[in-house]
Simulated assay, not measured.
Amino acid sequence: MVSSQAVTSAEVKGGHWFVVDGLAMPRAVGGHPGLDFVNTLAGWAEAEPSDYLKTYDHLAVWASVSGLLEADAAAALRRRAASRKAEGDAILKDAKRFRADLRALVLDPADGRALRRVNCVVGRAAARAELVPGPGPAPRWSVGGGLERPLLAVAWAASELLTQEDLSAVGACPGDGCGWVFLDPRGRRRWCSMQWCGNRSKVRAHAERHRA
């Protein structure tokens, strides 16, 4: 059984990921939850990329640690999904398709096919969106309570990204096995993290110069 408090504590691991409730989660480097959702897959150009969304549980927990879903709501959804595996698996498949379309759209806003597909999911989120009391003095948006809630929460956040951010300022990390995206409004950022991909590239370049 999943505790409603389980997703509130994170065990820090080295590098670009950490563990929440026994599940590996990618670190947030995108500057927006929509971009961080794209970054739940690393190695977009690789034959065998690394996918952090392995199960519905991963999707629900990621939405929680990203601030799109309350911890107790994520725990409740995971309990419900445990007895409705086929539905959870179908939603996870939809989430991965949305992730790929969202990446294509933020890197190429003129991609009409990606826009139509993203808009379809955003439309489902918009149809269910309502203002509810928040934890503070201001209300917050909610997109319903079904198993699709993590995906719709991501889609609602992505609609904000697509309409309020300058997509020409979105960069993609050129690191081997990476491809993570991030906001780069100053145009000075090359890597998702200098500590990870940047340093690996520097070490590789130094070794190649040494061999030469």
Rank of each mutant, 00 (worst) to 15 (best):
M1D: 15
Q5P: 03
V7Y: 15
E11I: 11
V12L: 11
K13W: 04
G15C: 04
V19R: 14
V19C: 10
A24R: 14
M25K: 11
V29S: 04
G31H: 10
G31M: 08
P33C: 02
G34H: 00
G34E: 00
F37A: 05
T40Y: 03
L41G: 09
L41V: 14
W44K: 03
A45D: 15
E46F: 07
E46H: 03
E48S: 14
P49E: 13
P49H: 15
S50C: 15
L53Y: 07
T55P: 10
Y56G: 12
A63W: 04
A63E: 03
S64A: 06
S64K: 03
V65R: 07
S66R: 10
L69Q: 08
D72E: 13
D72Q: 12
D72P: 05
A74W: 11
A75D: 06
L77A: 02
R79A: 08
R80I: 11
A82L: 04
A82G: 09
S83Q: 11
R84L: 12
A86T: 08
E87G: 05
E87S: 07
D89Q: 06
A95Y: 09
K96W: 09
R97V: 15
F98C: 00
R99S: 08
L102G: 01
R103K: 14
A104I: 04
D108S: 13
D108M: 06
G112F: 08
G112T: 14
R113Q: 14
A114H: 01
R116I: 09
R116L: 14
C120S: 11
C120Y: 10
V121W: 00
G123D: 00
G123M: 00
R124C: 01
A126N: 12
P139H: 01
P139W: 02
P139N: 08
W141M: 09
L147H: 01
R149M: 12
P150A: 10
L152V: 02
V154P: 02
V154R: 01
S159Y: 00
E160P: 00
L162R: 00
T163I: 05
E165R: 14
E165M: 13
G171D: 02
G171F: 01
A172C: 03
G177Q: 12
G177E: 09
G179V: 03
W180M: 12
P185G: 05
R186G: 13
R186H: 14
M194G: 04
W196A: 13
C197N: 05
N199I: 07
N199F: 05
R200K: 14
R200M: 13
V203Y: 12
R209G: 13
